[in-house]
Nucleic acid binder design. Structure first.
Length: 261
DNA sequence: ATGTCGCCTCATAGGCGA
């Protein structure tokens, strides 16, 4: 299936409130000029589409008051395919947005955090990941080049956190979500960052606001790009841009950037 | 348990979610 992805740059960033972070995001977009940007944790009913339109970006957003919220920005036309994850009609969280850009299936997710473990929140997380798996199976079968990006709220392996013992009681590090993430990989999806940086330690996308976590690089890698088998050979690079995390009043996450050919 | 953000409201302090 032909699609023009040459030089295409796709980024993902959990901004922890688009209203609080609008200056950081617009400055980063103007400088980095990604073809596509996936945003998570918008935390508001209104998405500032006009602000990004002025920078040349079309947008699609699924919003919710106070919580969650995901958006896709693109220099190219966006076709919105789905605004909710199938499998639970009662689930009203704004966590899923499936689009098509330049013949590529671009899926933006904000997976549930799931803390504390042993509660409905943790069960919701596992059920949500199981629903995502059903979609992942469908997308494999139709062969369309597919990228799933966003905040997975999963620390895949021990090297994806500064110190495993600090996270053993956290939902992001539990065997159940990690097992699901490994299943996604065994199905044929590629973890874009890890596959291009095998064994590299100290590479994180999130650092807590407290205890000087960023300054001491005590972080976790929870923002990911999964690539379908049809897309994986077209990855040229994947990196984490720590610059926005160093700004005044930053998001607790920083962007991850994927490049294709 | 704690730390620190950002949001909201039975609002200017406290609760929730992360």
């Amino acid at each position: 299936m032909a699609c023009n992805l040459d030089g295409m740059k796709i980024a993902s960033w959990n901004v922890n409130s688009i209203r609080a972070r609008i200056a950081h995001v617009t400055e980063w977009v103007a400088r980095e000029k990604p073809d596509v940007l996936l945003l998570q944790e918008l935390k508001g009913s209104e998405f500032p589409a006009l602000t990004f339109q002025e920078l040349g970006y079309e947008s699609a957003a699924v919003t919710q008051k106070t919580y969650n919220g995901v958006a896709v920005l693109s220099l190219h036309p966006i076709e919105t395919v789905a605004t909710a994850l199938l499998g639970d009609e009662a689930d009203t969280h704004a966590r899923f947005l499936e689009t098509r850009v330049q013949g590529l299936r671009v899926v933006n997710i904000y997976a549930p955090n799931g803390n504390p473990i042993g509660t409905d929140k943790f069960n919701y997380k596992l059920a949500w990941l199981d629903r995502l798996k059903v979609k992942l199976e469908h997308w494999l079968r139709d062969g369309t080049p597919t990228v799933i990006g966003g905040d997975f709220n999963i620390i895949p392996e021990d090297i994806d956190c500064h110190k495993p013992s600090s996270w053993i009681h956290d939902a992001l590090f539990q065997p159940e979500p990690r097992e699901r993430y490994r299943t996604f990989l065994s199905m044929g999806y590629t973890d874009a960052f890890r596959s291009s940086h095998p064994g590299e330690t100290g590479q994180f996308t999130f650092w807590d606001y407290f205890r000087k976590a960023f300054e001491t690089n005590r972080g976790i890698r929870i923002d990911h790009f999964l690539l379908s088998p049809s897309l994986a050979p077209r990855m040229t690079a994947c990196h984490i841009d720590k610059a926005p995390r160093q700004l005044e009043k930053p998001s607790d996450h920083t962007p991850i950037v994927l490049e294709l050919h």
